[in-house]
């Protein structure tokens, strides 16, 4: 069932956006370090090495997800049946007392995928922006953005914030996370259109009355209940935090490696010098030659 869901939910735009975002850094398994020569390093087994971009859950977000937790956070509760968006039918388990119930088995892989992508963006130093238009969640969402040192825009959205900017000395966000994809008028948030114009990938919580096709990485879940929103927000936070930690670690290691490389270079150059002097041996004419030349040059100058 889950496999079916996944295969069904792969509109062309999702895959296209995903590849476009990460296409600038295709890292084949053979050149993990960016260096061309990897022959001297022995690995335990080649089969264990994974292309991080192809890996389904690179930052191990799946270990945080459990259907029980989601159920407790009331992620499964949807809207009334009559406001259902027909593209959400795939993610709906059934209807009880006129209310739609979201299929958490369908939510879980999609949530994992969204979190994985978020962590990857954070790992590469991308700008992530949180969005919501619900007054009750603004404070917590903005605080979450501050906590993970990312950005938030939960206030009035001026048309053209992304598309019609006057200054060009700052970057636009590389990923936009919607905690609610709809605005007050129960229509899609205007930022979604602007994001799609710039091919900025979006990830968002889609309730049963939302259109999942508009979002690159949708997560079918309840976006009205505080417990559900805070649960999902904390997961996004962890994903960003993990990505950033990994980045920090990797950058530190790169620095160390560069240092050791320099030391090695110095050592090898010293060795080379030593061997050179040894090989030259007693014939010390080479360093004397420039000394002889210099005074002649000065004399010429002086004579003029």
């Amino acid at each position: 069932m889950a496999a079916l869901m996944l295969s069904r939910h792969s509109p062309w735009r999702v895959s296209y956006v995903a590849t476009r975002c990460l296409s600038s850094a295709p890292l084949p398994a053979q050149k993990l370090d960016g260096s061309t020569d990897t022959g001297d390093i022995k690995r335990p087994s080649q089969s264990l090495l994974v292309d991080p971009l192809k890996h389904p859950d690179y930052f191990c977000m799946n270990e945080l997800l459990s259907i029980e937790d989601m159920f407790k956070a009331r992620v499964h509760l949807g809207h009334k049946k009559k406001v259902r968006n027909r593209f959400m039918t795939n993610y709906i388990y059934g209807t009880r007392l006129g209310m739609d119930v979201i299929d958490l088995n369908a939510t879980k892989p999609l949530l994992r995928r969204a979190l994985n992508f978020t962590a990857h963006v954070a790992y590469r130093g991308g700008i992530i922006m949180f969005m919501t238009r619900r007054a009750e969640f603004i404070a917590s969402v903005e605080k979450a953005a501050l906590d993970v040192k990312e950005y938030a825009h939960c206030r009035y959205w001026r048309g053209g914030t992304l598309t019609n900017r006057t200054r060009f000395d700052y970057r636009l966000p590389d990923l936009v996370i919607f905690l609610q994809t709809q605005n007050f008028a129960a229509s899609p948030h205007r930022a979604i259109i602007e994001c799609s114009k710039f091919m900025i990938p979006t990830s968002g919580v889609v309730d049963t009355n939302c259109d999942p096709r508009l979002i690159s990485f949708p997560v079918p879940a309840n976006d009205d209940t505080p417990s559900s929103v805070h649960y999902l927000l904390s997961l996004y936070k962890i994903a960003i935090w993990r990505g950033k930690q990994a980045r920090k670690l990797a950058l530190d290691q790169m620095e160390e490696r560069e240092k050791t490389k320099k030391v090695e270079e110095v050592q090898t150059s010293e060795k080379l010098e030593k061997t050179a002097t040894k090989s030259v041996g007693g014939s010390g004419n080479v360093p004397d030659k420039p000394q002889k030349k210099k005074p002649t040059f000065i004399q010429k100058k002086g004579s003029k």
Binding site: L22, S24, A25, L27, L32, D33, G34, L48, L49, V50, P52, L53, H55, Y58, C60, Y123, R124, G125, G126, I127, R171, D174, A246, R247, L249, A250, L251, M254
Partner: peptide, 14 residues
């Protein structure tokens, strides 16, 4: 799974 992280660089986005 062995997680071998790719070389991070700002060039990816910057």
């Amino acid at each position: 799974v062995e997680l071998v992280l790719p070389k991070p660089s700002l060039k990816n986005y910057c």
